[in-house]
């Protein structure tokens, strides 16, 4: 009993200090990992500074939460590298009135970042365990986020159309229902790469009845050949 009281006392005593440590880590993460790589949108940077990433990673990964890399969250999924989250958020050019659909809630971190910027976030997770865990993490501080445990293939028609769609779990084809739920002029972003390494983002834009894609490269790699010829 006494030891429990001691632990609780110690926790209460150290908690504010711990929060300061995380805040400092977030600042460092934003300046060194995100701003330095070219993310400029102030609302995105603010969200990245505000949302507590360490609350969205498994307990054994808390110490690595602000590392410049993706982290495993179980079920063969990862929480994306902070820079990729910021970059994906920036490319959809989020506005405060936006309604955004996210396919693949995962840890819930991307939804939390979007929640800090846009009006409404709808997010769908297919793995029940991940969906429940994300719901728990988001319900208190991110009230404009609605989580649904379901197959994201059909989108969330009832709340559409959406200004933007963020697909965090890439499929080898883009579901037609998602394209139809995207507003005219809307943007959809899809990361493509192997586990632990997002190599490319596909930005889908719907304009004048035509759907086009653009490869956005989080890391623009210049092969040596070009360097030499320059």
């Amino acid at each position: 009993m006494l030891s429990t009281i001691c632990y609780i006392g110690l926790f209460l005593l150290l908690a504010p200090w711990q929060e300061d440590v995380y805040k400092a880590k977030r600042e460092k993460m934003v300046s060194q990992q995100i701003q330095r790589r070219g993310v400029k949108d102030p609302v995105v940077l603010k969200a990245m500074r505000t949302v507590k990433r360490h609350e969205f990673v498994p307990a054994d990964q808390t110490k690595n939460a602000y590392d410049d890399r993706p982290l495993p969250i179980g079920y063969g999924q990862t929480i994306s590298q902070p820079y990729i989250v910021a970059y994906m958020t920036e490319v959809i050019k989020p506005q405060s009135h936006f309604k955004v659909l996210e396919i693949g809630t995962g840890s819930g971190y991307q939804a939390a970042i979007l929640s800090a910027i846009v009006k409404e976030v709808y997010t769908i997770e297919i793995v029940p365990e991940l969906g429940k865990s994300a719901t728990e993490k988001l319900k208190t501080n991110y009230r404009n986020v609605q989580v649904k445990i379901s197959d994201g293939y059909h989108g969330w028609k009832e709340n559409g159309p959406y200004d933007a769609i963020v697909v965090t779990a890439a499929a080898e084809h883009i579901p037609p229902p998602l394209i139809s739920q995207l507003k005219e002029g809307g943007k959809m972003v899809i990361p493509v790469g192997s586990t632990f390494l997002t190599q490319m983002l596909i930005l889908v834009e719907k304009k004048n009845g035509s759907t086009t894609t653009k490869n956005l490269l989080p890391v623009t790699f210049v092969p040596l050949t070009r360097k030499k010829s320059e």
Partner: peptide
């Protein structure tokens, strides 16, 4: 699985769900 679908690189002009 009812949600297992495969259509590698399907055209974005395709309207029919897989």
């Amino acid at each position: 699985s009812p949600v297992l679908r495969y259509a590698p690189g399907m055209s974005l002009a395709a309207e029919q769900p897989v």
